[in-house]
Structures are given as C-alpha cells and as structure tokens.
Write a protein that binds this DNA or RNA. Structure first.
Length: 140
DNA sequence: GCCAACGTTGGC
DNA sequence: GCCAACGTTGGC
C-alpha cells in the first residue's frame, strides 16, 4: 500500500483559482514547463493531497486538492517530454493562510514556497502539511 | 511596474 | 563545459 504524499501546487487565481476547481469538479494540471515541477507531478499518486496556493493575487493557501489521475503526457505540449495530472477539489480551508505567515513560521522554512518562490509544484512533509492545515483552521 | 531569483539557451 | 544573455515567474 502506498503512503499518501503531500504537495503544494500554485495557480494564479485570475487564471484558474480554487473556486474554479470546485465549480468544475476536476482540472487537468497541465502547462508545467519546469523539470523539477514536472518530476514532482510524476511522483504524484492517486489520493495524494495538494495544498492549493494562489500566486500573484491573494498570496495564500486556500484549500486542498486531491490527485484524481496520475501523470500522463501533457496534451498542451507541442514538443518536449512533459506531463500533467488531474486534480479534484478535496476541501476548502476555513481560513486562508497568507504567505507572510508561512514565511514567519519556524517549522516551514524548508519548503520551496519560502526557499524558491518560483517552483510551481513542490513536495511537503506530513508535518509541514499538518502545520499548514491547522493554520488554515481545517482538518481532513 | 519594478526587480530579484531562477532556468534555459547558445556562442565560444 | 563555462558563462553571458535572455525570458519567465512572482513578490513587493
């Protein structure tokens, strides 16, 4: 049996926000053109949980998505070896967690959101996931 | 709108 | 294989 893994995915809410994911019920997470992010997508398994972060506008974690379908070739890639997954909404945060709070939390200093602001798909430890969940006043 | 950080590209 | 130039991302 595979252990659930935890991730953060970023999206600009004016392009595709968490509310849109809830409305649509599913989303193909395509368009990733960064090798590190792609490799993270490929490591995702069905049932893994992804915190949903709004970049550019909002700058906060707003909810949780769940991996619905594991990686497959990104149909939007005209060339190159790129992958995408399908996500579905899992649970909205009761309280969005703003970036400055994440940056100020002593136990969240190692996550890529703080260390490398540009990575769009990044792994989280269970502890980090749990901390963010409680900051969001949310439980599974 | 600016700029820092990062990744990619291409000349040598 | 190095590194300068360039493009993109994303916080501020």
């Amino acid at each position: 049996m595979n252990q659930t893994k935890y991730w953060i995915v970023k999206s600009e809410p004016d392009v595709f926000g968490y509310e849109q994911l809830v409305k649509d019920g599913t989303a193909r997470w395509d368009g990733v053109r960064n090798y590190q992010a792609r490799n993270n997508l490929r490591a995702m398994q069905v049932g893994d949980l992804c915190l949903f972060y709004h970049s550019n506008i909002g700058l906060e974690v707003v909810g949780i998505a769940r991996v619905q379908r594991e990686h497959y070739p990104d149909p939007t890639a005209e060339k190159g070896d790129w992958s995408c997954v399908d996500l579905e909404p899992f649970k909205a945060f009761n309280r969005p967690v703003p970036l400055p709070e994440i940056k100020n939390h002593p136990d969240l200093q190692n996550i890529a959101l703080v260390r490398n602001g540009r990575l769009s798909v990044m792994p989280l430890s269970f502890d980090e996931f749990s901390i963010l969940l409680s900051m969001g006043a949310t439980h599974l």
